[in-house]
Nucleic acid binder design. Structure first.
Length: 518
RNA sequence: GCUCCGAUCGUCUAGUUGGCCCAGGACGUGAGAUUUUCAUUCUCAAAAUCGCGGGUUCGAAUCCCGCUCGGAGUACCA
C-alpha cells in the first residue's frame, strides 16, 4: 500500500470524552505520525437527540492538552470538509438512494412501536427478534409491499427508514490487523438502519461514506465495533469501494480496575480516579466528573500510561516521550485482551514525569496553591523549594502539604513526635543551637561542623534526638529534607525565631527517668 | 438466548518461526542498605503448575480439539 496513510478519530459529542476514547485517539495519532500520514478529527453527531452542548469543545481541548494534534478537522478545517457530520447531511441521502437503486437497501415503514411490540413478543418466547432475511417479508417495507403502495406511502410523506439488505447465506470476512480474519455469516446479521426517518444517516452509513470520501486508509477504533464490521465491509462492497476499503484494527477495551466490565463513569467517581481527561460539568445535572488534568496529572504521564495500556514496545522500556512512542508504536504489539486500569501505576508514571520537570515548571504548577494560602515569596525561593521537594511528591497538588513550612512557621507541633523526641534537657540543647547559629558563619559546612561534629558528637549526644527535635521546632513534625539545607533555605533569623517559639511553646520536659537508649 | 472476540504473577505485560522459559520486566507488596527524620534512591525477596481437560511432538505458555470463564454486540445510539 503505497498511498499516504490517513486515519481519523471520530467521536460523538454526547458528553465528555472517555479515557478509552483518548487512547483510541492516541493510537491513531501515533500510527499517523509514524507513517508520515495524516490524522483528522471528525465529529459524528448524527444522533440529534444525544447531542450535548460543549462536548465538541471539550474533546478538542482534551486532545490538545495531551499533545494529540490533528492535520485536518472540525476545528481547523481541511480539504475534505466539512468535518462535522451534521454539516454533511445532504451528502448521505444521495448515497442512501444509490443503495436503494442498486437493490442493496430498501424502504421500511414499520413504526417504532410495531418493532418494540415485535421484540417483546419474541422475548416472551425466549427468542430475539431480528429484522433480517427471515423476517423482512413479514414487515412493512418496499420488499413486501407492492411498488404502487410504496410509492403511495412515499408520496403521502409517511415516515420511513432505509435498511441494508443483507444477502442471505454468505460468509463475510473482515481482516483485522490485530485479530486476523473474522468471519460471520450474513444470516446472523440484521438489516441495519442506514438512514433514519429524521433525514439523518446512522453511524454505519455516515461512517463509510465519510471514510471513503476522506480517503481514510486505516480505521483504528474500539472493539465494540467489531460485531458491525461485516456490515461495513458489505457497505464498501455495495458502493463498489472495496478496492480502497480501509484496513481495520479493533482495539481491546479498557476495563474497570476491580471486578469485571467496561470502565465507566461511575467507577472513576467510586474508586477515586478520573475516567475523563478534563473536568466535566454536566450541563444538565450540574454534576462534576473529575479529570486527569485537574487532578494534577501531567499530560506526558497520561499519554505514556495510556500508550502502555494495551500496547507494548517489545522491550523493557517503560518511559516514553511522544516522539519515542511515534517511533516505536506498532499495531502488531497491541494486545488482544482488555486491560484493567491501575491507579497505582498511574501515580508512579506521574511521579516519574514530575521529576523530569524543571524546578521552574514545578514552581509554576505550585503557584495556585501558594496563592490559595495567601503566600507571597520571592520567585527564586519558590523555585528552590520546588527543586528540593518535587522528588517527594507524585502530584503538584501534594506540594503544599509537604512543604508549607518553607513559607509558614508551624503553629502546632506533632504530639507523637514531641513525645518521642523532645526529651528532658532539650530546651538546653535548643538554646545551644540558637547560640551556634548566631555565632558561626551562616554557611553549610560551618553550621554542620559546629552542630554535628563539635556540639553533638563532642558531647556524645544522641544525634537523632537533637536533630529531630530541631526539625520538630522548625517544621512542626519530623519529616522533611536535610536539616542543614532546610536551615540554609529559610534563613538564620527565621530558624532562630522558630526554635525560640518551640522552646516557649513546648517547654522543658520534667523528670523522665527513661534515658534515651543511646 | 444468539453471534463474535478474548484468557501468562494482585495489576499492566514479555513470550509472535514450538526447545535459550521449572516463564522475564514494571507497578504494588515485604525485607535490607543509605539518611539526623520522612520521602527519594539502591539491593534482595515473595508472587503465574502459562483458565481447565484432552491430544500432536523427542519437546508446548507457544499448534489442534473440547470445556469453562470473561468481554462486546444484538436500537430509527454511536
Amino acid at each position: 500500500m503505497d498511498q499516504k496513510v490517513r486515519v481519523r478519530f471520530a467521536p460523538s459529542p454526547t458528553g465528555p470524552l472517555h479515557i478509552g476514547g483518548v487512547r483510541t485517539a492516541l493510537y491513531n495519532y501515533l500510527f499517523a505520525r509514524q507513517n508520515g500520514g495524516e490524522i483528522i478529527l471528525r465529529i459524528e453527531d448524527t444522533d440529534q437527540t444525544r447531542y450535548v452542548p460543549g462536548a465538541e469543545q471539550y474533546i478538542i481541548e482534551a486532545l490538545d492538552w495531551l499533545g494529540i494534534r490533528f492535520d485536518e478537522g472540525v476545528h481547523i478545517g481541511g480539504p475534505y470538509g466539512p468535518y462535522r457530520q451534521s454539516d454533511r447531511k445532504a451528502i448521505y441521502r444521495q448515497y442512501a438512494e444509490q443503495l436503494l437503486r442498486d437493490g442493496w437497501a430498501y424502504y421500511a415503514f414499520d413504526k417504532p412501536e410495531t418493532l418494540d411490540a415485535k421484540r417483546k413478543e419474541y422475548e416472551s418466547q425466549k427468542r430475539t427478534f431480528q429484522y433480517d432475511c427471515t423476517t423482512r417479508d413479514s414487515m412493512e417495507n418496499s420488499l413486501s409491499l407492492t411498488s404502487a403502495e410504496v410509492e403511495r406511502r412515499l408520496q403521502a410523506g409517511e415516515h420511513y427508514v432505509v435498511r441494508f439488505k443483507f444477502p442471505a447465506g454468505i460468509d463475510i470476512t473482515v481482516h483485522d490487523l490485530i485479530r486476523g480474519d473474522v468471519t460471520m455469516n450474513s444470516n446472523l446479521l440484521d438489516d441495519k438502519v442506514l438512514f433514519k426517518s429524521d433525514g439523518m444517516p446512522t453511524y454505519h452509513l455516515a461512517n463509510i461514506v465519510d471514510d471513503h470520501s476522506m480517503h481514510i486508509t486505516h480505521v483504528i477504533r474500539g472493539e465494540e465495533w467489531l460485531p458491525s464490521a461485516p456490515l461495513h465491509v458489505m457497505l464498501y462492497r455495495a458502493f463498489g469501494w472495496e478496492e480502497t476499503m480501509p484496513r481495520f484494527a479493533h482495539l481491546p477495551l479498557l476495563l474497570k480496575p476491580e471486578g469485571n466490565g467496561k470502565l465507566s463513569k461511575r467507577d472513576g467517581d467510586r474508586l477515586g480516579f478520573p475516567v475523563f481527561p478534563l473536568d466535566w460539568h454536566d450541563p444538565e445535572s450540574g454534576e462534576l466528573s473529575s479529570g486527569y488534568r485537574e487532578r494534577g496529572y501531567l499530560p506526558e504521564a497520561v499519554v505514556n500510561m495510556l500508550a502502555l495500556l494495551g500496547w507494548n514496545p517489545g522491550t523493557e522500556q517503560e518511559l516514553f516521550t511522544m516522539d519515542e512512542l511515534i517511533d516505536r508504536f506498532s499495531i502488531e504489539h497491541i494486545s488482544k485482551s482488555g486491560a484493567k486500569f491501575n491507579v497505582e501505576k498511574a501515580r508512579w508514571f506521574n511521579h516519574e514525569y514530575m521529576q523530569k520537570l524543571s524546578d521552574e515548571e514545578v514552581a509554576a504548577l505550585f503557584a495556585p496553591q501558594l496563592e490559595a494560602h495567601n503566600i507571597k515569596a520571592a520567585h527564586e525561593y519558590i523555585v528552590k523549594v520546588c527543586g528540593m521537594m518535587k522528588e517527594r511528591v507524585s502530584f503538584p497538588g501534594e506540594l503544599w502539604d509537604t512543604c508549607s513550612y518553607f513559607f509558614e512557621a508551624p503553629t502546632t507541633y506533632d504530639p507523637a513526635a514531641v513525645k518521642k523526641r523532645w526529651k528532658s534537657g532539650m530546651t538546653v540543647h535548643m538554646n545551644k543551637v540558637i547560640e551556634i547559629l548566631e555565632t558561626v558563619p551562616f554557611d553549610y559546612e560551618a553550621i554542620h561542623h559546629a552542630l554535628l561534629d563539635e556540639y553533638i558528637a563532642g558531647r556524645q549526644l544522641n544525634t537523632g534526638q537533637v536533630m529531630n527535635s530541631l526539625r520538630l521546632a522548625v517544621v512542626g513534625k519530623t519529616v522533611g529534607p536535610d536539616m542543614i539545607t532546610l536551615i540554609m533555605t529559610i534563613g538564620k533569623d527565621e530558624t532562630v525565631r522558630r526554635v525560640r517559639r518551640a522552646i516557649d511553646t513546648i517547654g522543658e520536659v520534667e523528670e523522665k527517668q527513661e534515658q534515651p537508649n543511646n
